[in-house]
Write a protein that binds this DNA or RNA. Structure first.
Lengths: 346, 346
DNA sequence: AACCAAAATTGTAACGTTTCAATTCATAAC
DNA sequence: GTTATGAATTGAAACGTTACAATTTTGGTT
């Protein structure tokens, strides 16, 4: 009953099971993989599995089939959005019998490179990237070795990369139009790093909206941030020190919005009367703040199922050749941080 | 240069490298594992690795050494605290050459069981659990097969389980004492599920503080919640409908605190004048709310390094026999949600 | 009872590493 | 120039599966 003194017994193998059940390992393997075996053999095998508390060695299995059943997830950050994404994807993949390995590159190209080596050595079947575009050659190499690559909100150009995107420009335009409708004319935007495709698309949406309203874009109202909250704060410092202050600000991600809020608190500004505010990314906090923050919500459940769909179709030759790209819509959650500008008649 | 048409070339193996470098696979293996080889061999091996873009097959390696180099992490939830914990642990372990597999049981015992099977089949070297105590027998079995088990804030009794705990009772007592000092006497607590050890410890801290002040604990002021925000809301409904309303509430986790805040908003109560509020778990939102919420912060960096320390000492026979248990302190972050009760002279 | 096809089982060869005893190679000492 | 010594290399045997060809068993037909 008790295992020997101090000795840790090694795990039971399929051999042990076969021996105890008095069948060959092949038969045990068949049973484990869901093929039919004769009822009495089956019963003995199951008894053996149970009494030896056998658990299939996934590593040996992966080795033999050269199918790791692993998926690599590369994200830029462990923020609320990505944490949820990782959680949901992890659960979803596990249900399909896959393990997810995650890596966070923190906008560091070297870290992203390292992640590729990491994923490669673990022979992931698929690679899912969010927001890292500097990996062109690495990604190509992985694909040429048969690894499926799915990119979220990214513009890797290789047509073999499967894409899930959200309509960054469209929804940003909608957000800015919301401000325009409220009567704002002096609308500033805090962008992400401009090398980043997502940041570019969001800025484009801003430009589209302004152009649609036949307004000039004042360069002083376009602040190049870097996604981090400090740059949101810095943006506000600069904007507020300018000759003309904006009546509304669009922040391209949630981190920078927090920086904006820090500034607002420090200067004791009132939202929305001194300043209307819209944020890309709807984190749960925004609902609870006073005022609650108008924000753009990315459709997380749809994103997850889009990724899963592409993943499941990975061996489907019909689709895998053609580029498959899924585009999803975001939702503008209008809350209390947006109102007409103070001296407006609108 | 280009890989054959459509054909996905299989990954280069150590054999390919050996052949190209004109040495035996043993030599290549030695080099890969950091042993000395003759300089000219080394040069040829490195050339071969590079030109074949060889990447060690971690699966085969794990198979042979029967060392998976994997660590299993089991968490109850993907909330902010656990997301950060997972992220930091993942990074930390990867630096040691380990992969982390994560599983979220969502307070579902069957899911937790499944996770054990999952981890077992992947032959994790260590298992790190947060907040799941219903796995006594499964955990014992894993340990008897040589798997290290580290439990965070848990009271698995087996002395072979290594423990990292925070001083739940002590810091909760401190929080309640803070309220007492402000002059509160009618202090309610919303607990977690009472089967849960952590919930028990937090309630104990409440009792300790009350007893220390020679106050009776009014059973109507102890609401048994279930960690989820709905139960925080329900608690407030009940407390507010009672004959005597509390002047302060202690919520045992952040989710339930959000439920409390929902109620506060719905009833247009004012914090802290109508009600003082303290929450266990300091999520980033609490700093940004108006009023900001007084909360208990768990020492995340210390937790991570404590876990890493136990992990690294896993083969150290000297310590591994004796139970190792690390206890950490939490910090009470006093903010604006706590103030003297309205009709108080304190 | 003899035969045949289908079904179930068996034995064995991989998969890509690591490891270890056996061998070869270099270097220095006599 | 031989021998002793240690260092570097080799070859082959594992690790625990799966897969496949070969074999045995089963059950139905004549």
């Amino acid at each position: 009953m008790t295992s020997g003194p101090g000795k840790t017994p090694r795990n039971a193998t399929i051999n042990d099971v076969a021996e105890r059940a008095n069948v060959s390992i092949g038969t045990v393997s068949r049973h484990l993989n869901g093929y039919l075996v004769k009822p009495d053999n089956r019963a003995r095998i199951e008894e053996a599995i149970h009494s030896l508390s056998y658990a299939r060695n996934a590593i040996a299995s992966a080795m033999k089939t050269s199918q790791s059943n692993m998926v690599g997830l590369l994200v830029p950050d462990y923020d609320e959005f990505h944490a949820q994404l990782l959680g949901l994807l992890g659960t979803s993949f596990r249900e399909q019998g896959f393990v997810t390995l995650t890596y966070c590159h923190e906008s560091n190209v070297q870290a992203a490179r390292d992640s590729i080596a990491f994923f490669r050595s673990h022979r992931v079947n698929s690679l899912i990237l969010s927001g890292c575009q500097e990996l062109k050659s690495e990604v190509e190499e992985m694909m040429s070795q048969g690894v499926q690559v799915i990119a979220y909100d990214n513009d890797l150009l290789d047509p073999r990369v499967q894409q899930v995107k959200v309509d960054n420009a469209g929804v940003t335009r909608k957000a800015i139009e919301h401000l325009l409708t409220l009567g704002h004319r002096k609308i500033a935007i805090i962008t992400g790093q401009m090398e980043n495709w997502t940041a570019q698309r969001r800025l484009q949406g801003y430009r589209d909206a302004m152009q649609g309203a036949e307004l000039e874009v004042d360069p002083a109202f376009v602040f190049n941030g870097d996604w981090r909250s400090e740059s949101g704060f810095a943006a506000m410092q600069k904007l507020w020190a300018g000759t003309e202050r904006p009546t509304a600000v669009f922040s391209s991600n949630h981190q920078m919005t927090l920086g904006v809020l820090d500034f607002v608190r420090e200067q004791q500004l009132d939202i929305p009367s001194d300043l209307s505010l819209i944020s890309f990314d709807d984190i749960s906090m925004f609902r609870y703040l006073t005022p609650s923050i108008t924000a753009i919500a990315q459709p997380l459940p749809q994103i997850v199922s889009a990724i899963r769909e592409l993943f499941l179709a990975r061996d489907d030759a019909q689709v895998s050749d053609a580029q498959r790209s899924i585009r999803l819509d975001c939702e503008l959650m209008v809350r209390d941080s947006t109102a007409p500008p103070r001296n407006s008649t609108a």
